[in-house]
């Protein structure tokens, strides 16, 4: 079963076409790593999948629910607001710069949506939070504020915040790019563990070794198109552009 289906996605900013017909399918339990040069449209792709941007043309289905489609006559239509809100409950997104809420403690960052959007009781929400913090090795930080955490810890909290809502698919946009190398490892370890638990994930990353290890499918994007995809395009690239790009990573 596909948790994410994107077909023929087109997206422009003004006259700049950033996505030029992207097709991407992600199966349940699959880990997809998206690699490619800066400016290639990777972030825009994730932002379209997560409703932060609206596409001009194409079709997106998440967990079987149709988010948007383009009819035969060329009319692109999103589902109604209520459905969009419902679909938003089915995925999570981890940002490059965390976007934690600085005025909330770690605990409140994780529980606020559970309590006020998903209408869980405080006890339930706290139990979910405690279990996640324990799993991510952050239990003693429950009452800290984001500004008192290292970047790596902040990113782990933001992963916990996304996981708390029990998403069917989790998107990561360069989750370690804002971190010092020594803090990167802890975050990558968490993502690896999630992969072992068969969490469905789409990860945009520049960590090539990590991508090769953890991903079931690798996608190389450049110039708004998927140049090639497969399970071993890092070790065995077919296209010149892929080879060129990978050469830059030694």
């Amino acid at each position: 079963m596909n948790v994410l289906e994107m077909h023929n996605i087109h997206k422009s900013f003004g006259s700049l076409e950033v996505l030029k017909g992207i097709d991407l399918e992600v199966k349940k339990g699959e880990v997809v790593a998206v690699i490619g040069p800066s400016g290639g449209g990777k972030s825009t792709l994730l932002r379209c999948a997560t409703t932060l941007e609206y596409i001009d043309k194409g079709e997106i289905k998440i967990a079987g629910e149709k988010l948007v489609s383009t009819s035969q006559s060329g009319l692109t239509q999103y589902t109604d607001k209520k459905n969009i809100q419902e679909i938003r409950g089915k995925f999570g997104l981890v940002f490059q710069n965390f976007n934690l809420f600085p005025h909330f403690s770690v605990r409140r960052n994780i529980t606020e949506s559970l309590i006020h959007v998903h209408k869980k009781s405080k006890e339930e929400a706290n139990a979910i939070c405690d279990a996640l913090l324990k799993k991510l090795d952050m239990s003693e930080k429950a009452d800290s504020y984001p500004c008192n955490l290292s970047g790596g810890q902040q990113q782990r909290v933001s992963i916990a915040r996304a996981l708390a809502l029990n998403p069917e698919i989790l998107f990561f946009d360069e989750p370690t790019s804002a971190l010092d190398p020594e803090l990167t490892a802890g975050v990558l370890k968490v993502i690896r563990e999630l992969a072992e638990e068969k969490m469905t994930m789409v990860i945009v990353t520049h960590e090539m070794a990590f991508a090769r290890d953890v991903a079931d499918k690798l996608v190389f994007m450049d110039g708004g198109v998927i140049v090639e995809q497969g399970s071993d395009i890092i070790s065995n690239p077919q296209h010149e552009r892929t080879k060129e790009f990978l050469a830059g990573y030694g």
């Binding site: 409703t51 932060l52 995925f91 940002f95 606020e112 006020h116 959007v117 998903h118 809502l165």
Partner: peptide, 9 residues
């Protein structure tokens, strides 16, 4: 954006 993804109105 974070708030929107987390479902806040």
């Amino acid at each position: 954006e974070a708030a929107q993804i987390l479902g806040f109105s």
